[in-house]
């Protein structure tokens, strides 16, 4: 918590956002169960929201300052607070009116360390919300992602295809093996449980599904199905509609990083300099999941 806010009465952050739905989409993406606590970190670069589950799964939503209409940051250090993700998303949802452009102001902290939200488009009708914040839980920082070896092991797959594959793997169940190999260049998802299911993405066969592929050696790790599922279960429909790709990277020790891009574009795209169809790259929220591999008794390591 920044002390400057209390002394000078200037809030740490006052920002305005004109696409509430985009923010709801981005935050919903990391909402894999009903009650989830999140930690929000503010900085001069933007807002990061972090959600974690039992030391095995962590998700981060990066909302860069460019996503906001205005972003006035006046804290020192990086103030952090805890908030209920479900409340935050439900609350933001009340501000998003379908077919109507709504602009909101977000302010932190309020007089009682609340997170304050307020609609600012109409002078005579105002929606406001105050969300109580908590002193944040400590975040485990052992999700430091380091590349294994010299070249990063990564592939990019259509988000829709990834979601479909992971949904299909529900049937075999609990533990899913991901194999990435250079020869033939392919990615394999394999589930063994009530039955076996193997889903192969061949790089040369489906270049429209597997968009990019970097691998110089075979690796194989197992991940808990429910954690893999959390990475795609709430991908917003806009991601599927825009036919975006998700990037998966396997790092040291088998740590899996899944990255999605969610557009937080203005609902009416008439702003300055935007030629038709061109989306400003800055109008993207980055979502990252880190999934730890299962510890197997017979380790299939990166050789």
């Amino acid at each position: 918590m920044s002390s400057s806010a209390v002394e000078t009465d200037t809030p740490d952050l006052v920002c305005q956002l004109d696409n509430v739905q985009g923010m709801v989409d981005a935050l919903s993406c990391v909402r894999w169960k009903r009650q989830q606590d999140a930690v929000v970190e503010l900085s001069e670069h933007g807002v990061v929201l972090i959600v974690e589950e039992t030391g095995c799964l962590q998700a981060k939503v990066y909302l860069k300052r460019e996503l906001f209409l205005s972003y006035e940051y006046s804290a020192e250090g990086r103030p952090r607070f805890g908030v209920s993700l479900s409340l935050f998303v439900d609350c933001l949802n009340t501000f998003s009116v379908p077919g109507h452009l709504s602009t909101i102001e977000i302010r932190y902290p309020g007089p009682d360390m609340q997170l304050l939200l307020k609609s600012i488009d109409s002078p005579d009708a105002c929606i406001y919300a105050e969300i109580r914040t908590r002193i944040p839980d400590t975040i485990s920082w052992d999700y430091n992602f380091e590349p294994a070896g010299r070249t990063p092991l990564s592939f990019t797959v259509k988000s829709a295809a990834l979601k479909e594959a992971i949904d299909d793997l529900e049937w075999p169940g609990s533990s899913i093996q991901i194999v990435v190999q250079p020869d033939p260049p392919s990615v394999t998802f394999k589930g063994e449980g009530h039955g076996d299911l193997q889903i192969d993405f061949m790089y040369y066969a489906n270049t429209d599904l597997l968009i990019a592929f970097h691998c110089d050696r075979r690796v194989c790790y197992r991940y808990k199905y429910k954690f893999l599922r959390a990475t795609t279960s709430n991908i917003p429909s806009s991601v599927i509609k825009d036919s975006r790709g998700s990037k998966l990277t396997i790092g040291r020790g088998g740590m899996l990083k899944v990255q999605h891009l969610v557009s937080v574009v203005r609902s009416t795209q008439h702003s300055h300099n935007d030629s038709a169809g061109y989306q400003q790259p800055s109008r993207i929220a980055y979502i990252e999941f880190y999934v730890k591999p299962e510890e197997t008794e017979d380790p299939v390591n990166d050789s």
Binding site: D124, A125, C126, I127, Y128, A129, E130, I131
Partner: peptide, 12 residues
């Protein structure tokens, strides 16, 4: 509620 207050004010 204990965690959140949401309101709407319509004026004039």
């Amino acid at each position: 509620t204990t965690l959140i207050t949401v309101g709407a004010e319509f004026q004039k």
